[in-house]
Design a protein around this nucleic acid. Sequence first.
DNA 1: CTTGTTGTTTAGTTTGAACTAAATGAATTG
DNA 2: CAATTCATTTAGTTCAAACTAAACAACAAG
Lengths: 179, 179
Amino acid sequence: MDDELQIAKENFIQGMSRIGSFWGFSKAMGAIYGVIYLSPDLVSLDELVKQAGVSKGAVSTNVRTLERLGMVHKKMKLGDRKDYYTAEADMWKIVRGVLKEREKTEFGLALDTVGESLDMVKTVTNPVDPELNDFYKERLKGMESFFNSLDNMVTAFTALDNLRVSALPSLFKKTMNNE
Amino acid sequence: MDDELQIAKENFIQGMSRIGSFWGFSKAMGAIYGVIYLSPDLVSLDELVKQAGVSKGAVSTNVRTLERLGMVHKKMKLGDRKDYYTAEADMWKIVRGVLKEREKTEFGLALDTVGESLDMVKTVTNPVDPELNDFYKERLKGMESFFNSLDNMVTAFTALDNLRVSALPSLFKKTMNNE
DNA sequence: CTTGTTGTTTAGTTTGAACTAAATGAATTG
DNA sequence: CAATTCATTTAGTTCAAACTAAACAACAAG
């Protein structure tokens, strides 16, 4: 392969591993996705071990997580027991997928927790300190309202999937230097 | 203090520490913010040690981070050497602040990295494998475009600050159970 | 100058996530 | 069935983040 091209690839892979760890994924996941993303052909597990520079075990688990997140797709070749992977190149699709997954778990849980506390405060019948009671109520309501809005935003965003309105980001577009 | 109220508070604080760690902050930061958020009066460092259940050192560093993020505000009382803290209760303001901070570092860096790789590919004069070269170009452009849109979205969102349009989330509002 | 009070820094420890190496399991082939 | 070739799982290790305890620095008061 072209040397310059190879260097560009390695630079990109390294960058993805950096970015990945910022977004809450492991460094290895970023690197693995980077490798697959820049491969025109299907990539085998052993190829990933070589190019991403992590052990087979790590690739095995990380690539499965990537698949669960919809970031890569597993393909089988007939008469070949190896697993092959392709990258999902539609970033917005990926974002929607990840948000959908996390909405169910973390966002909902946040709402539940706050709602729970709020309910406790509401059910105080004869408060010792009425002012403090009201203060708690106000603050907890504020927090609940925030998480509620957030949850609705995420829900709305993930729903864009069906409407095929991936064009949403263009609403925010200011300057784009496409070549 | 009312027992029921105290339990509600502790439940909330525990919840915040959980939520905090999900959003990339430390558990302690979440708990500390929770304590301050549910305090009608100014809170001293020693009070935080007691209520958040972490060491003095940890409170000292974490509370400083919280202040840097604009999540709490430091107040001094005259004739009192202690530091006191208040919570910033406007969540959207906090979100904007955090995004603004991260936009500069992580988002920009992501863009730079991809752009760098793209430039490398573009400057390949006599490619060994022209098709592969084009493939790289396409993929890297796609990624760059994604980060660009993302960056613009964040910029637009943080700019809402000035316009005082914190009402944005209401655009997404579906159902709100106020009371 | 000494003492007490407060926030910060530092040195050391704990903890948990994520990796490696190696064992295991599953499937195909001769 | 033995041997080979994969992917997965497991046991153990590494490493960095985050905490604690204690020393330290700054400051005010007596």
